[in-house]
Amino acid sequence: MIKLGAFASDRISTFAGVVTGKATYITGCDQYLLIPKNGEKEGRWFDEQRLEVDPNVAVIEIDNSNGNGADLAAPIK
């Protein structure tokens, strides 16, 4: 399992970024969303086994104790 906030890169494409999301599927596949630090590219999802975590980059910790962390309220229908 990869910790959210870690810096990781894809072994195949070398795409790299901060892990900001995780999806677990009923089929057993886990995917992680990488957001690049440079901001020039959109985030991309990768299978867990393709990712390599860089142990030299500190994990980003976000304190959400003052709220739920959402930028906007959920839409009301």
Rank of each mutant, 00 (worst) to 15 (best):
1 M>R: 08
2 I>K: 02
4 L>Q: 06
4 L>N: 01
5 G>S: 07
6 A>T: 08
7 F>C: 08
9 S>P: 00
10 D>H: 02
10 D>Q: 01
12 I>E: 10
12 I>L: 05
14 T>E: 11
17 G>M: 05
17 G>Q: 03
18 V>W: 04
18 V>C: 04
19 V>S: 07
20 T>L: 02
22 K>Q: 10
22 K>V: 15
23 A>N: 13
24 T>V: 13
25 Y>I: 09
25 Y>T: 09
26 I>Y: 04
26 I>D: 08
28 G>W: 02
30 D>G: 00
31 Q>T: 15
31 Q>D: 10
32 Y>R: 05
33 L>W: 09
33 L>K: 14
34 L>T: 06
35 I>E: 11
35 I>V: 11
38 N>S: 12
38 N>V: 07
40 E>A: 14
41 K>M: 13
41 K>E: 14
43 G>R: 05
47 D>Y: 11
49 Q>G: 11
49 Q>W: 10
51 L>D: 06
51 L>R: 07
51 L>Y: 10
51 L>N: 04
52 E>Y: 02
52 E>H: 03
54 D>A: 07
55 P>V: 01
57 V>S: 03
60 I>D: 13
60 I>L: 15
60 I>Y: 12
61 E>V: 09
61 E>D: 10
62 I>V: 15
62 I>E: 06
64 N>Q: 01
64 N>L: 12
66 N>Q: 12
67 G>T: 01
68 N>C: 05
69 G>E: 03
69 G>C: 09
70 A>H: 04
71 D>A: 11
74 A>E: 13
76 I>V: 12
